[in-house]
Amino acid sequence: MINASSNVKLFLEISAFLTGFSETELKATGMLETYYNTILANTDGNDIDYFFQNVSDILSAPERTDATIEQAIAMQLIPDSCYSGLAKNIIALWYTGNWVGTVVSAASYIQGLMWEAGHTHPPGAKQPGYGSWANPPLSIVKQQN
């Protein structure tokens, strides 16, 4: 079996492929450990073990490219029949901060990636300041000298 710390690493790596956000972007949410613990606490142990084994195989396949990895994810992780739908739950967790419809924590709500994907911020947090809404979001405005 793979040990816990390498599982966290695998979790981060596969999360990047699942969400379309880079590992650094995911780390910057500060939620990595919380989410890893969330899936451990709420998923059948066997599913977890086989899932990470599969993830490890996908990520360490010889001659892998992003395209081959994505293809493998689509075939081996995404179907609902695989690991009780764990991959989809992981995506929803990162995007919404919810585990199967329930908010994990205040921080998980605030760090939901869907807000960033939509060039905005979670309502009630990370407020952008007076009048910001009158202009396009800073994330799409080119910074000028």
Partner: peptide, 22 residues
């Protein structure tokens, strides 16, 4: 200056992202 203040908010969120990275 009003726009500048909105950049100031953004500065904070970007700093917090860095602080989350071990």
């Amino acid at each position: 200056l009003i726009e500048g203040i909105t950049v100031m908010y953004d500065l904070k969120y970007k700093a917090l992202e860095l602080l989350n990275i071990p």
